[in-house]
Nucleic acid binder design. Structure first.
Lengths: 212, 212
DNA sequence: CTTTTATGAGACGTTATTGTATCTTAGGTT
DNA sequence: AACCTAAGATACAATAACGTCTCATAAAAG
């Protein structure tokens, strides 16, 4: 499992099952609590985790370090969700559809990451990882333009931001319970390539309507 | 001009030019400062406004009241930007295109409103206004489905959230300087109805590409 | 069974921000 | 010119949250 090499703070033996249990509980509680309220206190996070506040401070030196590590885990989760896209060397539209399909079940983590971006911006390791992901995404967009899946006149920044926000839209609809992750990813793919108009020609891979 | 009837707190004569000047400066500084950092302090807001902190407290009883009033102004701004759509009784796709065109120059206010939603949720007047706007938007979407501009199988919640996020995408690109409000609204309209694929048929009103 | 170590509870100090109050000054009205 | 009133500076009190420290307990290791 990914080791938090981004910083070296460590007060105890991480292989002790009590320490592993506490740390995992804190990270999970951190995402859950901070997604609901980005100003949630450390006391609230510890309570949700079911551990003492002093224990939280044994695992994370400061509030900022907890958040940085939560952001690192979210980045790593989305990165690992896309690992098969790299290993299979998917390109263009195929890769973009796979990104939507793979990341949408993690849309909560993705949204969480964006909501705490001001913390992430100060951490060089996280910025490096994020920018590596962004470069790969831009390469896939460029390929989709070459294979005529995307109109090549469209600005790259708009396309990247649109993909981010389609993931957000999916997260929102999943969170409110109106869509499953699968439905949301299909709608995101359709929104991205075909828009919300009535379908008039058959260049979409998934031809049948998302809803009967 | 819209009077903040949502609450009756008022310590001084609002028609005094000094009071009007201070209040306007505080509201503008409030949006600017809180957009950058939703946790900005009242001291920071007063400094950006160029008024004393005590003056801020003469105009707004608490931090929360300032924010509620900022949200009210943002709601009113977007509502007034769409007034001509109502007065001309625009429907369906025409109305939706006009919404994008009218609101996009106010995308910063719109984004600001969404970022402070947790405050708004506690204010009945703001919620009422927002839900009235939402009902009108849903009516326009329903009309667009009837005039075959939107695939009627698509879920309403997705469509509404997508429009919100297209405005956010526009705001982001305007804020980073890569697009003008006009360019952004055209891209939002195209993204919404046609998606990012290569154009293969001519059902869009604005047929020429956004970019040559 | 003994030793080691992670943890929980609680006390404490520090800091930042909010909110209140007062006095003096200067802008606006009559 | 006189009067009224909005504002700026500053001091003060209260509160919330962060971060540190200590002691006793219990879980894990040997």
């Amino acid at each position: 499992m990914w080791l938090p090499y981004v910083f070296t703070y460590l007060k105890m033996n991480e292989s002790d099952p009590r320490a592993t249990r506490s740390r995992t509980a804190l990270l999970n509680a951190g995402v859950e609590t901070l997604l609901q309220n980005s100003n949630a206190t450390l006391t609230e996070i510890a309570q949700v985790a079911g551990v003492g506040r002093a224990t939280l401070y044994r695992h994370f030196q400061t509030r900022e370090q907890l958040i940085i590590e939560l952001a690192a885990e979210s980045l790593m989760a989305t990165d690992q969700a896309c690992a098969h896209i790299r290993s299979k060397e998917m390109k263009g539209r195929e890769a973009i559809e796979a990104i939507f399909t793979s990341v949408m079940p993690l849309a909560d983590r993705f949204h969480f990451l964006l909501s705490l971006w001001s913390y992430v911006e100060t951490n060089e390791t996280l910025k490096t990882t994020y920018h590596a992901q962004l470069s790969q995404l831009k390469a896939r967009i460029k390929e989709a333009k070459l294979d005529s899946s995307i109109d090549e006149s469209l600005p790259e920044e708009w396309l990247v931001c649109l993909m981010d926000n389609l993931l957000y839209t999916g997260w929102y609809c999943i969170a409110t319970g109106s869509l499953s992750a699968s439905e949301a990813s299909k709608l995101a793919i359709r929104s991205f390539f075909d828009g919300m108009g009535v379908k008039t020609n058959n260049h979409s891979r998934d031809d049948e309507s998302v809803f009967p």
